[in-house]
């Protein structure tokens, strides 16, 4: 049994290489006409966090994101089927974080800033 709010929401996510890749900022449920609601994905991203604080904050953040030229103005979703393990410390997901948008700021900082400074790599 998994208790979504207790065991999943706001837990640390790590990818298949054991790298921290954000927290479970949101949980996406599919509510169909028939049957019980189904968990379809975990959501990671500032927009999801902002929406939890206040919907207006999220819209405001999305608008500024678009103005600054951010790629996708929505949060990143990890399909529930990629969740491999949930334990007390963290949730392991079967993705390669470095290949996803989760890593875009990390990659940008590493390549554009840190590589140009001495001693960073």
């Amino acid at each position: 049994m998994v208790r979504l709010a207790h065991d999943v929401l706001d837990s640390q996510l790590v990818d298949r290489k054991g790298r921290p890749c954000g927290k479970a900022d949101g949980i996406v449920l599919l509510v169909g006409e028939h049957g019980a609601p189904r968990v379809v994905a975990l959501e990671v991203g500032a927009l999801t966090l902002a929406r939890r604080l206040h919907p207006r904050l999220s819209r405001w953040l999305a608008r500024w994101g678009r103005r600054l030229g951010a790629a996708a103005p929505h949060a990143y979703r990890i399909p529930w089927s990629q969740v491999r393990r949930i334990d007390e410390k963290e949730i392991t997901v079967d993705i390669d974080a470095a290949a996803t948008p989760l890593w875009s700021l990390e990659r940008w900082l590493a390549e554009r800033v840190i590589d140009r400074l001495p001693g960073g790599a």
Binding site: Q12, C21, G22, L109, G120, A121
Partner: peptide
Amino acid sequence: GFGWNWGENVKPRDAARFAA
């Protein structure tokens, strides 16, 4: 708080947001 990779024992490149 945001679940980034962090640590003073890794190179800045491997914890870029932390170093920033």
